[in-house]
């Protein structure tokens, strides 16, 4: 229980961890994250890794689309660029995994800037379609530049290792994914305490008046594109090292839409929302699968409906959230938290 808000200095009010309660729960979360891999089985760890990777990518997209208001239908292509860059650096140059993480990010950021710079003059639908074109064109390149990307067969990578310690299973890889997620989430939260994050939101809310407030639209839109595709690239690098193969089929338009769905269901412009969204959109298809598994005990044909049912539910989630809870799971979480803040003395 926590009542009221008494602070004696502005520093205390601006502090990263605002109160003992927050510190306590954050501590509990870290302990939970550390203990989790020792309790969970392979399947759960596999899902945890995939979710973590999705969180990194979703945080990136949420900075660009949720916070800075620049719609992108090409996020999966940037994840793909990160994945291909990492695969090439590892298989051709033999670079170590840890070095590949930032390099894959930088490579994706480079292409992000190339796509972003001419898009500066576009807004709304036009930008959306320009990024759609980028998605289509990158996908085409992944598929057809055999010499570089291996075409539809893709590229296989060996299990990554850090200082000779092989990360060849879900359990070990978790200890890379989790810290990367924590670093990315912390950095994104930090950004929104400073002028950079405020400038992003200003551009989203009213871009013209933002310029009159001294914000260079060009520079900050470019920052948003670069940062978002950097994180996509990092996610791509994690992904290829976890799955150990990269093919064009892994980064279709639908995957870009899935990332958009994550940030909408989670909460546009909210770092916490990206986390919720990524977890939710990874878990729901699995829950559906389990449910159909139960049903198939009674009627054996049920599993045939899995894929179309997942498609329907995916669309329904997007529509239902947009219509009924446009601020997503993050807003629901805030309401629950506020309820318990004064609980049981809410009156």
């Amino acid at each position: 229980m926590r009542i009221g808000d008494y602070k004696v200095s502005y520093a205390a009010d601006e502090a990263v961890f605002r109160s003992g309660t927050v510190r306590f729960w954050l501590g509990a979360l870290f302990v939970g994250l550390a203990v989790f891999p020792f309790l969970a089985g392979d399947y759960l760890l596999y899902m945890a890794n995939l979710t973590g990777i999705a969180i990194v990518a979703a945080v990136g997209l949420n900075i660009l689309t949720g916070a800075a208001g620049q719609i992108s239908l090409g996020h999966a292509a940037f994840v793909g660029i990160g994945a291909y860059t990492a695969a090439l650096l590892i298989t051709r140059l033999g670079l170590p995994f840890l070095l590949c993480l930032p390099l894959a990010g930088l490579s994706a950021a480079f292409f992000g800037v190339i796509v972003g710079a001419p898009s500066m003059r576009m807004k709304g639908l036009y930008l959306c379609i320009a990024t759609l074109a980028a998605q289509v064109i990158f996908e085409y390149v992944f598929k057809n530049w055999d010499g570089l990307t291996g075409g539809i067969r893709g590229i296989n990578v060996p299990p990554p290792s850090i200082l000779g310690f092989s990360l060849n299973n879900e359990f070990r890889f978790y200890f890379v994914t989790a810290p990367v997620v924590i670093i990315v989430v912390t950095a994104a939260r930090n950004l929104f305490r400073t002028r950079v994050g405020r400038a992003f939101i200003a551009i989203r809310d009213r871009d013209f008046s933002a310029e009159l407030m001294g914000i260079s639209l060009f520079r900050y839109k470019l920052y948003a594109f670069a940062l978002s595709s950097f994180l996509a690239g990092v996610a791509g690098c994690l992904w290829v090292n976890f799955i150990k193969i990269v093919t064009p089929e892994h980064f279709p338009l639908h995957e870009s839409i899935r990332y958009l769905a994550m940030i909408i269901v989670g909460g546009l412009g909210s770092v916490l929302g990206s986390i919720f969204g990524a977890i939710f959109m990874t878990i729901v298809p699995e829950v559906l699968k389990s449910a159909l598994n139960l049903v198939s005990a009674v009627s054996p044909k049920a599993m045939a409906f899995l894929s179309p049912l997942q498609t329907v539910v995916f669309g329904l989630l997007i529509v239902v959230f947009l219509v009924f809870e446009p601020h997503g799971l993050a807003e629901m979480w805030r309401r629950v938290k506020n309820y318990f803040r004064l609980w049981p003395f809410e009156h």
Binding site: I264, P308, V312, F314, G315, V319, L322
Partner: peptide
């Protein structure tokens, strides 16, 4: 996004 969601529903 709502029309993208709709397209997914129709496809499914």
């Amino acid at each position: 996004m709502v029309t993208i969601g709709l397209s997914s529903i129709l496809l499914g």
